[in-house]
Amino acid sequence: MEVTFIQGALIAIWAMISGLDAWLQAFFIFRPIIVCTITGLILGDLQLGVIAGGLTELAFAGLTPAGGTQPPNTVLTGIMTVVIAYSNKIAPATAIGLSLPFAMLMQYILLFYYSSFSLFLPRFDKYAAEGNAKAFKRLNYIPLTIVTLSFGIVAFLSAYAAQGPMHTLVTSMPHWLTHGFELAGGILPAVGFAMLLKVMLKQQYFPYLLLGFVMASMIPFSNVLPVALVGAVFAMIEFYRTRENDKLAAQIKELKSSGNVNNNGGGGMDDGI
């Protein structure tokens, strides 16, 4: 099924809204689970949007902008996963892999902005030195506008203008290749988890990682809540234990230092007399 011009325009508007949110990180409607759902709604297939949203959210679970790296853009992945699955009638899991080039394109555009927006800084400094609040506020709208429009333009070109070539590409792909993309979509969360581990994993925390892994492998459940609760139990135990330890450590320190003061005081008296 084709994406109509109106649908393409609506997707562009949605990309601007969620893209602005991705830039500011305010409402988190830039995460794939929301982006896919709304894109599905625009295309008239809410069900597809929700399913694609769940799968894409998982694939991007650990790909977060924390820790200094800018991951492939979630807005473009979300939009293009649904668009590709919708217009080519393929499984969302396969479409995730095909949407990735678009997400990387947007990622590189944002990286370019992160570097080039420092050009605005001398201007900001000037207005700050003058105490010109009005001009300072106004200047902030320029980067915001550039980012918002970029999202709209890239999304429109990807979702509407590129669908012909995309369709040719998808239909000409042999089965082993589409199946490969589907597999990659299933393995992709590993990249995100590895990135999370790089930031979070210290030797002392490895037992908890193993605990969560073994629980999820052995006990059948439909979401991570039970494991999260067990994790919370250990977190609480550690919380009270650490607090108690800190209190004891503080008391010992106090006792030691008060002992020192007495000794010094005594010594001083002796010297003085």
Partner: peptide, 20 residues
């Protein structure tokens, strides 16, 4: 410290459930 414990337990389970 406490957030790391909770977070890593969850990540352990996510590896088992979501990497196919």
């Amino acid at each position: 410290h406490v957030a790391s414990i909770l977070g890593l337990t969850v990540i352990g389970s996510l590896i088992a459930s979501y990497v196919k």
